[in-house]
Design a protein around this nucleic acid. Structure first.
Length: 566
RNA sequence: UGAGGAGUCGGCUAAUUGGCAAGCCACCUGACUCUGGAUCAGGCGAUUGAAGGUUCGAGUCCUUCCUCCUCAGCCA
């Protein structure tokens, strides 16, 4: 993997802030970050950006990064997600050591902080209905009005809050609010709710609680409790920072983490919001959270994308505060760059065309030496059987080739990779006039693909022996959407209208070289000249299934699409 | 129209904090090649959202304006 981007690492605004803090002796020289997912969905590549940032920063500055589940809403959360999140943080290559926490671990403390707030006259129990509360909140341009319950005495608030906790009140009847300023131009400061009644079973605390803290309150204090020094989050929380700070200042906590916001990741030709991703899964638009077209880590993994490639990608895209749309091509570059160095090369024919070598002895089989990875000699070589009847790619033959088409055509000679040079001597067509078989002759002096006489051939194509190849199903994946920014919905069109109808093409009858017979699920390979593929987890010895991760760069197709082949 | 943010090559990000606007992706040439891959060499491409101002000198400081994003959950 190239490391030239490492030179610029450490130059983003967040690392600059931390460097300066360290220089100024803040936090006693400690750097503690945290990755705080809510266990209500699967991780996607946007989370990967945050994970790389938080764990990366900790590592670079000799600090630690906590994994903390922000599980303050039992109605939406589940252990299923907790387990999946941990699995994928590890998969991405990061480790939280013994720093695994849950906001729910702090429920008792958080409750006590809420009581303290009440005692300080900084919180009150409000008995407005949700609708009334909304009406009292005002609008973006008009100030809100004080709740009639705002002036309840400390004693009454304490009493009521205790009753809320004891389950004496129904959901929606009471809420604990911070007493800040109903006229604040920042809506988050208009007496935000910090505790609400929710009679739901929590995945960790069961029915111990029937009141749960809200995000702003829980997050600031959880950060404080853990001694987080830099609390990194996305831009939409910028407006919440005054509330984050208010909680810590008002409670005069011993430490006060610094919240810093960065732009979330947007990737072209996909969507990133949990709601949309969930809708794609539930609506059957994809096969599941791990559908290889999904930007989820589960999907990317099944697609064959490596954690190294994702980390490299996150490094390359940088870190800033401006909204941006990162080109999918950027991710593909990182994927190819990584796989080029590590994926073993094999031969596979996706759209088979039979080729018969007329002067090759019937029944003869030769084991040809094939290099596993020209980028890495230590990966060795393997034997590939060569015989009289082969399959080649339909795309590699043109009966009437344009000028810049270098591959096989009548009368032309090409090299069969690691095999022999063959010349096309004739074609066999079916009743519809389609070419169904090629007749060729080979030059016995070119064994292994060598040309003792120094003669040049313009093309080398891949092949498999018809008698030895294993059948396989190959799934060709393409971008899920055909619109660069489907989630924008600016034109009023639902993002689903931009779903790419050909994002998946299944080729049920492909042939792969015999060395792939027992390929392990998850193995990543390069099918020579076609792209990078991986063995699907559901692939079996009886039925091999490969997923295309990404194509190889394809100059020929580009020329052809531009019409520059003649 | 309240508040908070953000505007730098086609995309993403830098700029020693006032000193020749740099890198990556993409794109284009060429070399090399038993993958039309990879690699290598080179190239294209930003009057830094706009207009003023301060200054010997402004992406950076000041003023005005424009555009875009976020916020009116008892979600996070």
């Amino acid at each position: 993997m190239t490391t030239n981007v490492a030179a610029t690492a450490g130059s983003d605004f967040i690392r600059e802030i931390i460097t300066n803090d360290l220089k100024a002796g803040k936090n006693g020289g400690r750097v503690v970050t945290r990755f705080p997912p809510e266990p209500n969905g699967y991780l996607h590549i946007g989370h990967a950006k945050s994970i790389c940032l938080n764990f990366g920063v900790a590592r670079e500055f000799g600090g630690v990064c906590h994994l903390r589940f922000d599980d303050t809403n039992p109605a939406k959360e589940d252990v299923e997600y907790v387990d999946a999140i941990m699995e994928f943080v590890h998969w991405l290559g990061f480790d939280w050591g013994d720093k695994l926490f849950y906001a729910s671990d702090y429920f008792a403390k958080l409750h006590d902080f809420a009581v303290e707030l009440i005692k300080r006259g900084k919180a009150y129990v409000c008995s407005l209905t949700p609708d009334e509360m909304r009406a009292y909140r005002g609008t973006l341009t008009e100030p809100g009005k004080d709740s009639p319950y705002r002036s309840r005495s400390v004693e009454e608030n304490l009493q009521l809050f205790a009753e809320m906790r004891a389950g004496k009140h129904e959901e929606g009847t009471h809420v604990l609010r911070a007493k800040i300023d109903m006229a604040s131009p920042n809506l988050n400061l208009r007496d935000p709710a910090i505790y609400r009644i929710k009679k739901a079973e929590h995945h960790r605390t069961g029915d111990t609680w029937c009141i749960y803290p809200m995000y702003d309150f829980a997050h600031a204090l959880s950060d404080m409790i853990e001694g987080i020094t830099h609390s990194l989050c996305t831009l939409e929380f910028e407006d919440h920072r005054p509330l984050y700070d208010w909680c810590l200042e008002t409670l005069e906590t011993p430490c006060h983490p610094q919240q810093i916001e960065f732009a979330r990741l947007n990737l072209s030709y996909t969507v990133m919001s949990k709601r949309k991703l969930l809708e794609l899964v539930e609506g059957g638009y994809v096969s599941g959270w791990d559908d290889p077209r999904m930007p989820t880590l589960a999907g990317l993994r099944r697609r064959g994308v490596t954690p190294e490639a994702i980390r490299d990608f996150c490094q390359r895209i940088g870190m800033a505060k401006r909204d941006s749309l990162v080109d999918m091509g950027m991710l593909e570059y990182s994927v190819r760059d990584d796989l080029n160095h590590r994926a073993a090369r094999v031969m596979a024919v996706l759209r088979p065309l039979k080729l018969v070598i007329e002067n090759y002895p019937e029944g003869q089989v030769e084991e040809m030496d094939a290099v596993n990875n020209p980028e890495d000699p230590s990966m060795g070589s393997r034997k590939v059987p060569f015989a009289r009847e082969l399959y080649i790619e339909q795309d590699d033959f043109r009966e009437d080739p344009p000028k810049k088409f270098f591959r096989l055509s009548p009368g032309r000679e090409v090299r069969l990779r690691y095999g022999y040079l063959v010349t096309c001597t004739g074609v066999v067509k079916n009743e519809k006039g389609e070419v169904v078989e090629l007749r060729c002759t080979y030059d016995p002096a070119t064994r292994g693909g060598n040309t003792p006489d120094g003669r040049k051939v313009k093309a080398t194509i891949h092949w498999v022996s018809a008698a030895h190849a294993r059948p396989a199903e190959v799934r060709l994946y393409d971008r899920l959407f055909n619109h660069e920014n489907p989630g924008l919905e600016k034109d009023g069109k639902d993002y689903k209208t931009h779903l790419n109808p050909s994002s998946l093409e299944t080729l049920p009858q492909c042939w792969v070289e015999p060395s792939l017979a027992g390929a392990a699920a998850g193995s990543r390979l390069q099918f020579e000249r076609l792209g990078y593929f991986c063995v699907d987890p559901l692939s079996t010895a009886d039925k091999l299934v490969f997923n295309r991760t990404v194509t190889l760069k394809d100059t020929w197709t580009k020329l052809e699409q531009r019409g520059e082949v003649d």
